[in-house]
Amino acid sequence: MRGPDWTDAENDLIVADYFAMLKEDVAGHRYSKAEHRRALLPRLNGRSEGAVEFKHQNISAVLKGLGEVWIPGYKPAFNFQMPLVDAVARWLARNPVWLDPCVGWRPASGLEDAAPIWIGPPPTLSNQPPPKELEQMLQIARKFDVASRDARNRALGRAGEERVLVHERSSLQVAGRADLARKVRWVSQEDGDGAGYDIASYAPDGRSRLIEVKTTNGWERTPFHITRNELDVADERRAEWCLVRLWNFAREPRAFELRPPLDAHVSLTPTSFQASFDG
C-alpha cells in the first residue's frame, strides 16, 4: 500500500542527505549508506527503510534528468512526483558550486598522464530509454533549462576543452605523429571564442580536425546549447568540423562525436532571438 505523499520538509531533508552522500561518493571517500539512513529516519514521518531507499533512487532519476551526477548504488527509479524535482532544484539553487572541486579534477600524476577518453557511438533511436522514462527526463530538462546551466558553467566548459586537447595530442603521439601533436591548438583560449570551434587538431593522416567541445557532468543525452556561429562553421567546413560531446565528466569522462549536418543527429530548437531597431 502506498503511503502518504512526502511533504516539502521531508523532501528537503532527504535531498540534503543524498547530496551529503553524493559529495563523498564523487570525491572517492568512504561513507555508510546505512548510517545515513538510520540518522535520517527519525526525522521523517514514520517512513520505512524501503521507502527511504526508493526515494533515494527517485532522487538519482531526478538528477539524471537535470544532467547531474548521481550515486551509482542508487539506480534511477522513475515515476517520481514533481515536488521532489522542486526540492532538488531548491538544493542546487542554494549550493550552485557544490561540484566545483570536481570540475578542476586532475589525475594524481597530472593531466598530461590522463587515460584516453572513452569515445563511443552517439545516442540513437535504437538505444534510447523507455518512452515514459525519456519523457520524464525531457520534461525536467525543459523546465529547468539544463543546457543553459552547463553553458554558463565556464569552469566545466574550460576543463572539458582542456581534457579533449590533451586527448588529441596524446592520440597523435600514440599514432606516431608527434609532429602533428605539437601543432594542436586550443583556439578558444589562444584566439577567443569567435572561431566556431574550440580546438584545431589533426587526424593521423594530416587532415584538419576542427573540434567544438560540449561538456556535461550528466548522461549522454543531456541537452546542450550551440551557437549560430558554430552551426555556420559546421556547415561551411563539413569535412573538418566535428562536435565532441563529453559526458560523465566529474567521474570518468566519456565522449562521442557528431559530424555535420547536426540536424541529422539532434533536434535543433531556437531558444533566443535578436532584437533590432528598424529604420
Score class of each variant (00 low, 15 high):
Lys55Ala: 01
Ala264Asp: 14
Phe277Arg: 15
Glu257Phe: 10
Ala77Pro: 00
Val266His: 10
Val88Asp: 04
Ala250Lys: 01
His29Asp: 15
Ala239Thr: 06
Thr222Val: 12
Asp25Glu: 15
Ala16Ile: 01
Val97Met: 11
Glu236Thr: 07
Ser188Met: 13
Leu262Lys: 12
Val244Ile: 13
Asp235Tyr: 04
Trp247Val: 03
Pro122Ile: 05
Glu133Asn: 06
Ala203Ser: 13
Ala155Trp: 05
Gly3Tyr: 08
His36Asn: 11
Asp193Leu: 08
Val97Ile: 04
Lys55His: 07
His167Ala: 15
Pro270Gln: 02
Leu22Arg: 00
Arg47His: 13
Asp100Gly: 02
Pro270Tyr: 05
Tyr18Met: 03
Val233Ile: 15
Pro107Phe: 12
Pro121Phe: 02
Pro204His: 09
Ser276Asn: 04
Leu41Gln: 08
Thr124Cys: 04
Met137Ser: 10
Gly206Glu: 10
Glu133Val: 14
Gly192Val: 11
Gln189His: 12
Pro83Thr: 12
Leu63Phe: 12
Trp247Leu: 02
Leu111Asn: 14
Asp25Asn: 13
Leu22Ile: 03
Tyr197Val: 04
Glu161Ala: 08
Asn11Gln: 10
Val103Glu: 04
Ile211Asp: 12
Trp6Cys: 01
Arg152Trp: 09
Arg228Ile: 14
Ser148Pro: 01
Asp145Ser: 12
Lys183Ser: 15
Gln173Arg: 15
Leu134Lys: 12
Ser208Pro: 03
Thr222Cys: 15
Ala115Ile: 04
Arg30Ser: 13
Pro223Asp: 00
Ser272Arg: 01
Gly50Asp: 11
Asp5Gly: 12
Asn45Ser: 15
Asp8His: 08
His225Arg: 13
Glu133Gln: 12
Pro96Tyr: 04
Glu112Arg: 15
Arg47Asn: 09
Ser208Leu: 15
Pro129Ala: 03
Arg30Ala: 10
Gln189Ala: 14
Ser126Val: 09
Lys183Phe: 05
Pro270Phe: 05
Glu162Tyr: 03
Ala200Phe: 11
Ala77Ser: 08
Ala93Gly: 09
Trp98Gln: 05
Asp150His: 07
Ser188Glu: 07
Asn153Gly: 01
Arg106Ala: 15
Phe54Ile: 12
Glu112Ile: 14
Ala159His: 08
Pro76Gln: 05
Pro107Glu: 09
Thr216Leu: 05
Arg169Thr: 03
Gly157Ile: 06
Pro131Tyr: 01
Val62Trp: 01
Val187Ile: 08
Leu66Ser: 00
Ile140Glu: 00
Glu190Val: 13
Gly65Phe: 03
Leu231Tyr: 06
Asp25His: 06
Arg154Phe: 06
Phe256His: 15
Asp100Cys: 02
Gln128Arg: 09
Trp186Ala: 03
Glu230His: 07
Glu24Gly: 03
Trp98Leu: 13
Ala51Glu: 10
Pro96Ala: 01
Leu92Asp: 04
Glu161Thr: 07
Ser276Met: 13
Glu68Trp: 01
Arg90Leu: 10
Asp278His: 05
Leu258Lys: 02
Ile211Gln: 02
Pro83Ile: 04
Val266Lys: 06
Ala175Met: 05
Pro129Arg: 09
Ile71Arg: 11
Arg207Leu: 10
Arg152Lys: 15
Leu172Ile: 11
Asn217Trp: 00
Phe273Gln: 05
Pro260Val: 07
Ser272His: 07
Lys33Asn: 09
Glu240Gly: 06
Thr7Trp: 01
Leu258Arg: 07
Gly73Ser: 09
Asn79Ala: 11
Thr7Met: 01
Arg237Pro: 11
Leu156Pro: 00
Val184Ile: 11
Glu24Met: 04
